[in-house]
């Protein structure tokens, strides 16, 4: 049976999270939504997603801290980051740590789709 890729969405903003979930499902993937980084880390039952799209600016734990935690835990899967307030230092740090993409909000859905497809293909390869 054909494997349906799973994409995890981590964003504290309900509107952004719900719209991304809808987009991802419309692209034919399975979407899992998390309202915060700790919430994602706490979800141990469902296993690692095929890809993760995460916001940078979040209360409690931000995007790059999440990335660092995951890498530290040895959990490696493609990660795409987005931010409404991009700064060069954060971009460099995140990309250097191995992120697939660093997108500015609002991001073009086509761009998201493109990076998602690339990430998933890369992850399978």
């Amino acid at each position: 049976m054909h494997h349906i890729p799973t994409v995890a969405i981590v964003d504290d903003d309900d509107g952004v999270r719900n719209s991304l979930a809808s987009l991802i499902r419309s692209l034919g993937y399975e979407a899992r939504s998390y309202g915060s980084a700790p919430e994602f880390l706490a979800d141990c039952e469902t296993g690692d997603p095929d890809c993760m799209i995460s916001d940078i600016q979040m209360p409690e734990m931000n995007g790059d801290q999440l990335q660092a935690e995951l890498i530290a835990a040895g959990r490696r899967f493609p990660m795409i980051f987005m931010t409404a307030f991009p700064t060069a230092p954060v971009r460099e740090r995140v990309m250097a740590a191995g992120a697939c993409a660093f997108l500015d909000k609002p991001a073009e859905p086509d761009t998201i789709a493109h990076h998602l497809a690339a990430a998933l293909a890369h992850g399978h390869a």
Partner: peptide
């Protein structure tokens, strides 16, 4: 501002 704009565009595309 960008959060809702992001949601609008993404929802529209979806």
């Amino acid at each position: 501002v960008n959060q809702p704009l992001m949601a609008v565009v993404t929802n529209g595309e979806a």
